[in-house]
């Protein structure tokens, strides 16, 4: 074999990090939550997740192959992440065909119309979820069908919304471990936090966005709780962090690269915005849960934040 001299401008080495590894890490970080969900809600969780992942990957493959006519991009695993996240935002009892529709919207409209990975202004999984929430409100908020009886009853967010004093009757340890009503991925608080720590350790995400969101929500809730006086100052914030999609949204959805700001300062502003909007919707809006809409709205603000939160120039 002869020697072939390579030529390229510097640098000549690479850190070895790649898109597929990052996406793989995100999937890995979501597995504990999936396990908790399966344990609590039953095998149907795995079925719905599989349907979502498969349809996302197939849609991305078909669009890439026949519309873009380019190299297929499914190998970067981003469609898998979208699929898992979408499934995590659905109730376990949802009919499978709705999941397929959601996946098509997420990938085809949420991602590929804008040019594929990295070009989408809104989180694709959220696009899919919000579409389904508006198109199939009944199925999307039915947390009981196909779920074991242990968790029957309506979800707690709307209950607390109108009767905040009931919060003191909740068992937070149970919520922490996954014993509560909600979408598939929302229920295992501990598992989600574990996943978040893993992502932090692998440097896939930084602390800025999750901490900004959760911190804002906690402070906001504490202020509101102070209005009721007594123990609610502590219990209302804790409740709002554990209930609904707060953790899933803050750790996994809001930190999506292409839809969140680039600089740390921008990330904090973005996180605070999400926290405030979420709490406003939760407390005074028509919907019981506001995480998705809050992230969606701040996604739209991201280019603006990027424009005004530039990194600090060296020497200035």
């Amino acid at each position: 074999m002869a020697t072939r001299l390579f030529a390229a401008p510097s640098p000549h080495i690479h850190g070895g990090e790649n898109t597929r590894r990052i996406m793989g890490d995100v999937v890995l970080a979501l597995l504990p939550a999936l396990a908790v969900s399966t344990y609590v809600l039953g095998w149907r969780v795995l079925f719905i997740t599989a349907v979502a992942v498969c349809s996302c990957v197939v849609v991305e493959y078909l669009i890439g192959r026949f519309l873009f006519k380019g190299r297929t991009t499914i190998c970067d695993l981003s469609a898998v992440v979208t699929g898992v996240l979408l499934a995590f935002n659905l109730p376990a009892g949802i009919p499978w065909w709705i999941v397929v529709i959601g996946s098509v919207v997420a990938i085809a409209i949420g991602k590929m119309t804008f040019g594929g990975l990295g070009c989408n202004p809104f989180n694709p999984a959220l696009t899919g979820r919000i579409f389904l929430l508006i198109a199939y409100p009944v199925q999307m908020t039915d947390w009981t069908t196909g779920v074991p009886d242990t968790l029957s009853g309506s979800t707690i967010l709307p209950t607390i919304k109108y009767q905040p004093e009931l919060v003191s009757q909740l068992d937070f340890m149970q919520m922490f471990g996954g014993q509560m009503n909600g979408s598939m991925g929302e229920i295992g608080a501990l598992a989600l936090i574990l996943g978040g720590l893993y992502l932090l350790w692998r440097r896939v995400i930084t602390w800025h966005i999750p901490v900004a969101i959760l911190g804002t929500m906690a402070i906001f809730a504490a202020c509101v709780g102070a209005g009721y006086g007594g123990a609610l100052i502590y219990e209302l914030p804790l409740f709002h962090l554990l209930a609904g999609g707060a953790l899933l949204g803050a750790i996994f959805m809001a930190t999506d690269y292409s839809t969140s700001p680039m600089t740390h300062k921008g990330m904090i502003i973005y996180g605070v915005g999400i926290g405030v909007i979420t709490m406003i919707i939760r407390l005074w809006g028509a919907y019981p849960e506001g995480m998705s809409f809050a992230i969606f709205i701040m996604n739209a603000a991201t280019p603006l934040i990027n424009k005004y939160c530039r990194p600090k120039r060296f020497g200035c």
Binding site: E17, N18, T19, I22, T73, D76, S78, G116, L117, G118, C119, Y257, S258, P261, M262, T263, H264, R310, P311, K312, R313, F314, C316
Partner: peptide, 19 residues
């Protein structure tokens, strides 16, 4: 080469504070 995913890692790595 793949598509830019806007992860911002280059922004964090730049020692001159550029984008």
């Amino acid at each position: 080469e793949l598509a830019c995913i806007k992860c911002g890692k280059c922004v964090s790595a730049c020692p001159m504070g550029l984008e």
